[in-house]
Design a protein around this nucleic acid. Structure first.
Length: 315
DNA sequence: GGCCCTCTTTAGGGCCTT
């Protein structure tokens, strides 16, 4: 089973069946949102929190509200998650990947892994000296709450706002979660998407040398252990295998050049995490089709945090 | 920082990520 075939089927199916899809983004955060199930496993004290997810039905345009309260770490916190606006939703509709055969025949396609395409924006390139300021992820399986994105308070000045448009005034605020406060939310999201006895496969462009080590450093800085069973695959070395019509390797395998190469529509502001995730989802679909890569192939190419942790420390 | 390529391997430049 190829990733492309799954996606293709889902693309067509979704154009005609949009009622159950929504996406989420963390819009507001009061310090300290921690998931009980996570922190209890880590021996933390708990405190009451309230999370609210607002989801708009894509079929009726009506809003639904989902609320839950948990006890975490002490302070009272609240977060709101709201669906994308209509233009964003159009992109989402074209990317949602749920099972066409399940709709047609009632037979469920057996995905060998949960595939999470993600991207980060940071204050710079050095994982030792810089910080993550935005995180976005999309579960290729699609369905409700398949996307998640949030700004992150870096607790330092943002000096590269000219790159991504994320300024101090946007993230250096008490209502924006710091990375240590974001981690439990992320873990909760991953667990909500993970299938029983199936691995989680994270996908990022240049992930091996940038996104994943950056995440590792942030986890370490917060003294939180990164799940050791997470698998990662980097689309950059895969893209470098591509050849043009003359049989020559592409001069550039950057995400932007790949978007141009595959004539993928521009999904909004480049260097914003969710836009780059959307682009990478399209690129991944094209890439796996062209190179005849299946999900098991991606799993074979995957690596773990421990593979990086044993490498030479960053200077 | 790590990887890839070549005018290389006893090296150096460019790409890729923000």
């Amino acid at each position: 089973m190829s990733l492309y075939s799954i996606c293709c089927g889902n693309f067509h199916q979704l154009r005609n069946s949009l009622g159950s899809s929504c996406s989420i983004r963390l819009l507001k955060y009061h310090r300290g949102l921690i998931c009980r199930t996570i922190l209890q496993n880590r021996g933390h004290k708990t405190r009451p929190i309230c999370t609210t997810i607002l989801a708009r039905s894509t079929r009726k345009g009506s809003k639904q509200s989902f609320s839950n309260s948990r006890h975490l770490h002490g302070e009272s916190v609240e977060s709101s998650i709201e669906v994308f606006r209509q233009p964003d939703l159009q992109h989402l509709k074209s990317l949602q990947c749920y099972n066409i055969q399940e709709k047609v025949s009632g037979v469920r396609i057996d995905w060998p892994a949960t595939i999470l395409v993600f991207d980060i924006e940071t204050t710079g390139f050095s994982r030792r000296h810089e910080r993550i300021i935005e995180f976005a992820v999309r579960d290729l399986m699609g369905g409700k709450n398949s996307t998640f994105q949030t700004l992150i308070n870096p607790e330092k000045d943002v000096t590269n706002a000219y790159i991504h448009g994320i300024s101090n005034s946007m993230v250096c605020r008490p209502d924006i979660p710091r990375f240590g406060e974001f981690v439990p939310i992320l873990l909760q999201y991953v667990w909500s998407r993970q299938m029983a006895d199936k691995p989680v496969l994270w996908v990022a462009h240049n992930g091996r040398n940038f996104d994943v080590p950056f995440l590792m450093y942030e986890f370490q800085r917060c003294k939180i252990e990164m799940p050791g069973d997470w698998l990662f695959v980097d689309t950059l070395p895969i893209a470098r295998q591509l050849v043009d019509s003359n049989g020559l390797k592409l001069k550039s395998a950057s995400l932007e050049k790949l978007r141009e190469h595959y004539e993928i529509p521009f999904a909004g502001s480049a260097h914003r995490a969710m836009q780059d995730v959307t682009t990478l989802c399209y690129v991944l679909q094209k890439l796996t089709f062209e190179l005849k890569l299946t999900i098991p192939h991606l799993l074979e190419k995957s690596f773990r945090v421990s593979d990086i942790a044993t490498a030479r420390p960053a200077k």
